[in-house]
Design a protein around this nucleic acid. Structure first.
Lengths: 338, 338
DNA sequence: CTGTTAGCGCCTTCAC
DNA sequence: GTGAAGGCGCTAACAG
């Protein structure tokens, strides 16, 4: 393992010159630079990360906070993770994945030990203790999702009310008048999960706006509960002709129950899901979906965080609500109302 | 940010004592230890990761090498990532996710800079250039998957031939005699992808052993190609009554084509998939599946790697082929042969 | 444009 | 059982 001192000696320059050749933080004559770079190449030198981190007080590492216990281990999260990792790599950062739960201070400890420069917080609640913690401690972070009060907080999120509006508008255009929304709740924190709260509120407004009747069904993120909920729904309100699902994990169960009842999608029941294009493609019949741009969100999360990390003292706070787009598929889950 | 020197001063001891209190590498009197720990608590001290890494020459970070271009972004990989991250955290390591491709030396550079102590390699080919690279450079690594020659290499993998045998045995027991296998190929490297090669060979043997006739269909990891392949298969060999799929990404397409042809699963065609239990649950009708223990494999990958990292010079090489288990589900994709 | 030289915070050998 | 001190490899003043 060669060090800068080795390179400096071989190139007949000082260590700082080698350092500056690498960082470009001060002008170096072309010929000196060449000589140094040549030695670096010959020695297959790679600057030591720990030495650099110690001296510069930055680890060039960011953490993706993905609390597994609040999610159903299926879903777009992989798209978030992969796209975030790629974008981080592109910007010269390493991405570490942390699965610590809401209460856990493991990740805070990573920051305090200087192992991580900043954090991307996923599965954000309206009033999220992690967000509060990081804010108070001055830890740089960005959210995928957003809180009730986002003053001074950087985030990227899908515009859920608008996503629901797009779905409702589409269904109403096809003649549907009794529409149900099946959202995603994870137990007790039902009231605090932003996407659920926002899409429910949006649904209420959209339905009124389009002169339809809306029904709301909370559902756990599992195929099992999806089956249970749809069975109950159809028994209770047989007049419902369309369903909007925000619950990707429940889709399999929704489909199964409909089939078990001898009904057909989309003939007897139309289904629109807010989910990733890849998952919509997975279902049979294919889903009409309001696309959840997970990869884009992962990328932007990293982008916003890096801006905070590298921008000066008063970098502007970036907040971004993404516009939903609907993709109607061949043989998709939509039919004119009966 | 308190440092060890601060703690030492406040506790009235030397820095080395603080260090040893933390590492436990030499005996400290109970009362000194208490005094030091008390100061650590009061100052909310967290040992600096860079300082520690620089002095100890270990980053306590491992990388998960997950080349996105060779995989279909389904949910199974997420199970690997999450379980690996959890296990790493449990053992005091950070897990970084790297999406670099086969040729890329980005990850090697991370090792050479000391940013990473070891690597978990996923999507291993029979003759994998990355494996060869790491072996030659002496980089500690473990594979999820395995090569043609695994001498001296540590790995965990599913026993694919056995997985196929279990599926074939099950189908034959139900009376099927003409069985097709749909596997997963990613373009040109078809011949080099271990699971495909091994399961195909296993399939050939199993089919003979059970006195059935086997058909082999390679398929890209996408719903689209799954649809194409099944359509071709049924046109070419209408006598096929059962399919074994190793291609999770293609499942949606397989199902869709079968439905589009007016056929029913499992009445007209039985389907068994080698995939994770969560995904099998997602399909309608539910799949009978030979379980792919992704979470377990992620965990064991970390375990094996940490053993290599922390074990002495001659830690035994750990190699593990996991036994497949089949889960037959209610209303599953199986029916007696016509 | 280039060199010298303090640290950055921790580990660990050596000495007591 | 404890302390002193020399690195680990790099960055960034400070000084030409």
């Amino acid at each position: 393992m060669a060090t800068m001192a080795d390179i400096a000696k071989r190139a007949g320059v000082s260590v700082s010159t080698v350092s500056y050749v690498l960082s470009g933080k001060r002008p170096i004559s072309a010929e000196t630079r060449e000589r140094v770079l040549e030695e670096i190449r010959k020695a297959d030198f790679h600057p030591n990360a720990a030495g650099r981190a110690l001296a510069s007080r930055r680890s060039r590492t960011i953490a993706l906070l993905y609390p597994v216990d609040t999610s159903g281990l299926t879903r777009m999260p992989l798209e978030f993770v992969i796209s975030a990792a790629e974008e981080a790599g592109r910007r010269g950062y390493a991405l570490i994945v942390s699965t610590s739960t809401a209460e856990d201070e493991e990740i805070l400890s990573k920051v305090q030990r200087g192992a991580v420069d900043g954090i991307i917080v996923m599965e954000v609640a309206l009033h999220d203790p992690r967000v509060e913690l990081f804010r108070v401690r001055g830890v740089p972070f960005t959210m995928i999702g957003h809180c009730a009060d986002n003053t001074g907080l950087s985030y990227v999120d899908l515009d859920f009310p608008q996503a629901v509006e797009v779905a409702v508008a589409h269904l109403c255009e096809l003649g549907h008048r009794r529409i149900a929304i099946i959202d995603r709740t994870t137990g007790a924190e039902e009231l605090g999960y932003g996407p659920s709260v926002r899409s429910r509120a949006g649904f209420r407004d959209s339905v009124v706006r389009h002169g339809a009747t809306g029904f709301h069904y909370p559902c756990q993120p599992s195929a099992e509960d999806g089956a249970r909920v749809v069975a109950g729904m159809l028994a209770e309100h047989p007049g419902i002709t369309a369903v909007i699902s925000l619950n990707t994990e429940a889709l399999g169960g929704i489909y199964r129950t409909v089939a078990d009842l001898g009904l057909r999608i989309p003939t007897d029941l139309s289904v629109v899901a807010v989910t990733s294009a890849r998952i919509a493609e997975f279902m049979v019949p294919q889903l009409t979906a309001v696309d959840f741009p997970a990869a884009l969100m992962g990328r932007m999360g990293v982008e916003f965080l890096v801006h905070r990390l590298e921008g000066g003292e008063h970098t502007p706070i970036e907040q971004r609500l993404l516009e939903p787009t609907i993709t109607v598929r061949q043989s998709a889950g939509l039919a004119p109302a009966r």
